[in-house]
Design a protein around this nucleic acid. Structure first.
Length: 555
RNA sequence: GCGCCCGUAGCUCAGCUGGAUAGAGCAACGGACUUCUAAUCCGUAGGCCACAGGUUCGAAUCCUGUCGGGCGUACCA
């Protein structure tokens, strides 16, 4: 629709130039937008204002000359010049009717876009260490990463969702030690449990399982080996639990990538040697340092410590090099906001290995505050007291949890109100939107029963010219802007744009529903309105799907 | 100290790649079900967009500074 307006303007500019009404035929970059107020039309363009410089003419004068050269169209009811030089278009109601046909025809693809041009893009998210269950913060990251992936894919990108498993290094050894010591304790040995070990009860469960499944063979080993066995055993089980929890949360990855594999294939070593040969890595105080300062970091960073052990940064460098070698045009990492200090470092490594900075992006997800009974739920990861993602999903359900996580921009901290997420009324956004889908399904079922309209899943609108009510046109306008919102969400990497969109569409529908009956004695009007609500149902479903939330037929 | 995010209605937040009169939900108040699901709707009220400068024809939006809140600043992960 906006493109139509642009085309009209371009034609008008050409005509006006030929008539001599405009001194220049240069075309500026114009905006076509939907004004806030109905009195300013359906669409508005700043064409005249941004032309002022080129034409050396007052914006309002340019606007007048342009409007005089606009070809009459049956889509346009009237055109007004307003304010400093805006050209406002008021469209006829008929101009909006074809939206229904487009929705019914494109169905699940309505709203999709090709702005991604099939670019290969990877979204890596969650990537929690397999040393304990996922907590609420991971949940927000999971919801965001998954939704961003869906939205990019819908916008025409070739998306891969990946989980990076930190199955190597110190945390895994600590996990092994924790399990091993709990196991010893369970056998009656008096051991002081170290501060830096994992204290959650799940460690004790893992110790029992290890004892049962690995049995005496484990106890006969030397301690270091026993710890390693415990570590591998525990990590494998925890990772399995993580996969289950994510699946229950509706998140499925295309690939699970092991950090250990980077060592097994010598990729970490190769990366270090490669950078060394380019003098990007140097030795000092017995350690190897990467010159991240040369790429804008505050200080250089260690990749190999003076005890010979690599840091996580070393494997992260190798990992990101490997990602681009797999052919991704762009790589996006979703991290918790507490990792923001890491961005420069990784960015430096990406640029150092010959990629452009624009090919790497980080989505920083701010922290989640759980609220119950109006007060924050206290959590401490160290003490093993935290609310897990599974707890949340079990308590409020997958749909409510995901919708809540995606309701706000991830740039802001999120208060997750557990009581609110469980409410089954309009205060709970997920019900507000899902209810639209269920309500429409109810109407469609009634229509098949009472009006004997059996083949209700039209692929084309019926008697659309009978859609004349203000609320009907409003719905058409909102639905028309779905693709635009998908594109905005994709380019900004902000899934809450879809949330906001769905809320406004739902609000418009509920308003319409309360004012007008869909099924009336007038058969043609009924068919027209059924076409309309059927298309609303599809748009709601498409939007919810992007966010990973189900669209129920009944509630 | 330095870096990142945030500061918009009493509360929770949209709007931020500059546009005309700043929006929604909750809370408050007043209304609407013999009706396709009231898990809904309609109305009233509520604002120096933290503050101060700057850029611009035009700033909640961009720049600088100040104040306030969160997070980070390891040869940790």
């Amino acid at each position: 629709m906006k493109d139509t307006i642009k085309t009209i303007m371009l034609k008008a500019a050409a005509v006006a130039y030929e008539k001599g009404d405009l001194p220049s035929n240069q075309i500026p970059v114009m905006e076509v937008e939907e004004p806030r107020h109905a009195s300013q039309g359906d669409f508005s363009t700043n064409f005249a204002m941004v032309s002022a410089g080129i034409q050396k003419m007052a914006p309002r004068k340019i606007a007048q000359n342009l409007v005089a050269s606009i070809e009459p169209s049956e889509l346009v009811e009237k055109i007004e010049i307003a304010g400093p030089g805006f050209i406002n278009f008021f469209l006829t109601k008929e101009a909006w009717h074809p939206v229904v046909d487009r929705i019914l025809e494109l169905n699940t693809q309505y709203g999709s876009s090709d702005i991604g041009k099939k670019q290969k893009i990877q979204v890596e998210f969650v990537s929690a260490n397999p040393t304990g269950p996922l907590h609420v913060g991971h949940g927000r990251g999971a919801a965001v990463g998954d939704a961003v992936g869906n939205i990019l894919s819908f916008a025409g990108f070739d998306v891969q969702k990946e989980y990076y498993i930190n199955d190597s290094g110190r945390q895994i050894r600590t996990l092994g030690t924790s399990v091993w010591l709990r196991l010893q304790q369970s056998l009656g040995k008096q051991i002081d449990f170290p501060e830096d070990c994992y204290k959650g009860d799940y460690i004790k469960d893992l110790a029992e399982r290890a004892l049962k499944e690995k049995g005496d063979g484990l106890l006969e080993r030397d301690e270091p080996l026993a710890i390693e066995i415990c570590a591998k055993f525990a990590a494998k089980i925890i990772l399995g639990t993580i996969k289950e929890d994510l699946l229950q949360f509706g998140v499925d990855f295309d690939q699970w990538f092991s950090e250990q594999s980077l060592y097994d294939t010598k990729r970490v070593q190769k990366a270090i040697e490669d950078f060394k040969s380019k003098d990007l890595i140097y030795e000092q105080d017995g350690a190897l340092w990467f010159r991240t300062e040369d790429f804008g970091d505050e200080k250089n960073r260690v990749v190999v410590r003076n005890n010979g052990l690599t840091t996580y940064f070393a494997s992260d460098i190798a990992y990101h090099m490997e990602k681009y070698e797999r052919g991704f045009d762009k790589v996006i990492d979703v991290w918790g906001a507490d990792h923001h200090g890491y961005i420069k470092r990784i960015d430096a490594s990406v640029v150092a290995s010959g990629r452009k900075s624009e090919q790497f992006g980080v989505i920083l997800v701010q922290l989640v505050n759980l609220i119950r009974g109006g007060v924050p739920v206290q959590m401490s990861t160290r003490a093993g007291e935290f609310v897990t993602l599974k707890d949340i999903v079990d308590e409020v359900g997958k749909d409510a949890a995901r919708f809540m996580f995606l309701s706000r921009s991830y740039d802001s901290g999120l208060d997750f109100d557990l009581d609110l997420a469980k409410q089954k009324n309009s205060e709970n956004p997920v019900y507000y939107v899902q209810y639209v889908h269920a309500r429409i399904t109810g109407i469609l079922i009634k229509a098949t029963k009472e009006s004997l309209i059996f083949d209700i899943d039209f692929d084309k609108g019926k008697h659309l010219d009978l859609l004349q009510e203000k609320e009907e046109i409003n719905l058409l306008k909102i639905m028309n802007s779905f693709r635009e919102n998908v594109e905005k969400s994709a380019t900004s990497l902000h899934p809450h744009v879809i949330f906001t969109y769905l809320m406004s569409l739902a609000s418009a529908f509920h308003g319409y529903y309360n004012k007008h009956k869909v099924i009336t004695a007038n058969k043609e009007q009924t068919l027209a309105r059924l076409s309309l609500v059927l298309s609303v149902k599809k748009v709601i479903r498409n939007g919810l799907t992007l966010l990973g939330v189900s669209a129920p037929e009944r509630m």
